[in-house]
Design a protein around this nucleic acid. Structure first.
Lengths: 130, 130
DNA sequence: AATCATATGTTAGCTTATCTCACATATAAT
DNA sequence: ATTATATGTGAGATAAGCTAACATATGATT
């Protein structure tokens, strides 16, 4: 089992995620409705969130604070995943990917840090991470 | 927030822990009854387990397989915590601690590895861990 | 200013998950 | 044969989560 497997394991109930992110259940479900996250479900249809999901939710919080809307956040998250993949297959980046990285860095720039678990801090649960 | 804080954060429902450890709810509650673990509770009295708890449960499984009973496991877990602490305040070990370390190593020796999450594997969720 | 869209609050009714407690039982120890 | 230990099982109760609908604050659009 590798790191990415662990990151995407369905582990947390919505109650736990509410505490970790300081979001309401309504907010979390709304973001799912807008396909910003797609948590697993138990056999009884209850949501089960992964570390990845929680990390995304923390980022969504940040981006909302900065004035982005669902559509914008969705795009940004999608591009971040691309950047992540381009890091793995570390090589020639397309123009679009480069722009994406720029936006990514821009995004990293002005963290506010008002959440109980600051965005990015969750990565400390894992090995091989800075 | 340091590593030990993260390890002891109450995160998982009993359902998740059942999947992670392949133990039944009955077993998990029984081990708590015998004070091998002491999970937190929600305001509504439902159990919330930490990484530490899950790690202990995996170890309990191993030890049961090896024929230990509750009392024996309780002692062993208690001594392991002492060893852990003695590693932190790295210094002169008492005879008892030394014996404890021996038992610890003996324990580490013959892992069976039949659980979905092998004992010890959980530590990979964390940084600063080998 | 009036209207509309977006994000979130709130409530209702329902289902799933978990709780404790009690009793049953297989296996091992005495 | 009896006892102790670890686990199964079931009942009845409560907590936590689900969807769906309606309410509302804020900001954008006309």
């Amino acid at each position: 089992m590798n790191d990415q497997d662990r990151r995407s394991m369905p582990l947390f109930s919505i109650g736990t995620v509410m505490k970790l992110t300081e979001l309401t259940a309504r907010q979390i479900r709304y973001y799912e409705e807008n396909e910003l996250i797609t948590p697993e479900r138990t056999s009884g249809n209850q949501r089960l969130f992964s570390f990845n999901d929680v990390d995304k939710l923390l980022e969504i919080k940040d981006l909302l604070d900065k004035g982005l809307n669902m559509a914008g956040i969705k795009l940004l998250l999608a591009e971040e995943i691309k950047v992540e993949k381009s890091k793995v297959s570390n090589s020639d980046l397309s123009d679009k990917e480069l722009r994406s990285i720029l936006r990514n860095e821009l995004n990293e720039a002005g963290r506010l840090g008002r959440t109980s678990l600051r965005q990015g801090e969750l990565s400390r649960f894992f090995v091989n991470n800075g």
